[in-house]
Amino acid sequence: SCRSSALPPSERPGERRGAEMKKLYGVDAAKIQGMETAMQLTFDRNCDRKQPKYWPVIPLKL
């Protein structure tokens, strides 16, 4: 994986997330979740394929 151990494990779409989304976004929850899922999939796929490394190696702002 491209992500360092400093990052929290990525969320998996599931029931819990669905309920959270509903509470936050109401009737538009499905639309927002759809857009977010597509974006996250693109990000995951690009990271798998390109194996990007963090720049800078050490965070500028801690």
Binding site: E36, Q40, T42, F43, C47, P52, W55
Partner: peptide, 17 residues
């Protein structure tokens, strides 16, 4: 390239530093 949904990371190409 893309970003994760929490906008914690930007995935980019040809980064000019």
């Amino acid at each position: 390239g893309s970003s994760d949904i929490d906008v914690l990371n930007f995935q980019v190409s040809d980064l000019h530093t």
